[in-house]
């Protein structure tokens, strides 16, 4: 009796220690986010006004102006990157989950994982070699290609994962109805996993939206509106970088504001992802 209650007490201590430790670690994850947000808001919120979203940067010395071109540029680059990353990534994921043989799949997964680990600056070099050099100049295209390449391995793996989550029963049922394979993949398997695929794409977008390094010598940045995708284009991370290393206080403030906007964009994407996944679990898939 006595020993057992002492044993019980010891177990309680262990339990408390462990839960205390994990709570601390969990807080350590949240804390930086809170700090970063807090600092960004205090430093950047002041510089955010209507002009920030609508105006071009003012020349040095003049106060005011905005980052409208950088915001649009980032969105443009995201769009261009998606044009490459989404189809290749999604179809690659479909291949992995629906068609590939074991040996082939192993190599593709291995490749995707390695590419995932490639430093982003390397992607910039790749795009530079493939696009900037042949086109003889920095361009939105080059930035899009660099970011698009980065998206591919991310999307391939998430797409494969969510497609594998689709119960095999649906594929069998569709096959037993005499539906051709490609239609099954397109209209049953992918449709069932659509939310998951979109989630993967959004996460990949959020991941690359903040990339700076691959844009340095591809999109290059632009103080003005870009009228053609063959020209250099502005992007929020680039602009922040340029402003942050400048010696002007006003630019510093603008850099903070840009960082805040960028973080908020990524935040919004993540919230969208959350909404999508929550619905998936309470909704159709039971």
């Amino acid at each position: 009796m006595n020993t057992s209650s002492r044993y019980h007490a010891w177990r309680k201590v262990k339990n408390l220690t462990m839960s205390g430790l994990s709570f601390t670690c969990a807080t350590l994850v949240i804390a930086p986010l809170g700090l970063v947000l807090f600092y960004l808001i205090t430093a950047g919120a002041g510089a955010i006004d209507w002009h920030f979203f609508t105006q071009l940067p003012k020349p040095v010395g003049e106060t005011g102006g905005g980052m409208a071109n950088a915001i649009v540029g980032t969105l443009t680059l995201l769009g261009l990157a998606s044009l490459i990353g989404v189809p290749v990534g999604v179809l690659g994921g479909v291949y992995l989950s629906e068609y590939g043989g074991e040996r082939m799949n192993w190599w593709i997964r291995f490749g995707a994982d390695v590419l995932n680990g490639v430093p982003s600056i390397v992607w910039g070099i790749v795009a530079y070699t493939l696009v900037v050099v042949p086109l003889k100049g920095f361009s939105a295209y080059a930035g899009g290609v660099a970011l698009g390449f980065m998206m591919i391995p991310l999307i391939i793996r998430t797409t494969e994962e969510v497609l594998l989550l689709v119960p095999n029963g649906y594929r069998e049922a569709a096959l037993a109805l005499g539906i051709p394979r490609w239609r099954i993949n397109l209209q049953i398997v992918m449709k069932t996993a659509l939310r998951g695929i979109v989630t993967g794409v959004l996460l990949a977008g959020a991941r690359i939206a903040g990339e700076t390094a691959p844009l340095l010598f591809t999109a290059f940045g632009n103080r003005f509106w870009t009228h053609h995708l063959k020209d250099p284009i502005a992007a929020l991370p680039l602009q922040i970088f340029t402003y942050a290393i400048s010696p002007y206080d006003d630019w510093h403030r603008q850099a903070w504001a840009g960082a805040l906007v960028l973080i908020l964009m990524i935040f919004l994407i993540n919230i969208g992802v959350r909404a999508l996944t929550r619905e998936r679990f309470s909704g159709a898939t039971r």
Partner: peptide, 16 residues
């Protein structure tokens, strides 16, 4: 398979 239909152990209507 179009001529020989099949019904499975676990009912599997397409969820979408």
């Amino acid at each position: 398979r179009r001529r020989v239909g099949m019904v499975f152990q676990k009912s599997n209507p397409f969820p979408t």
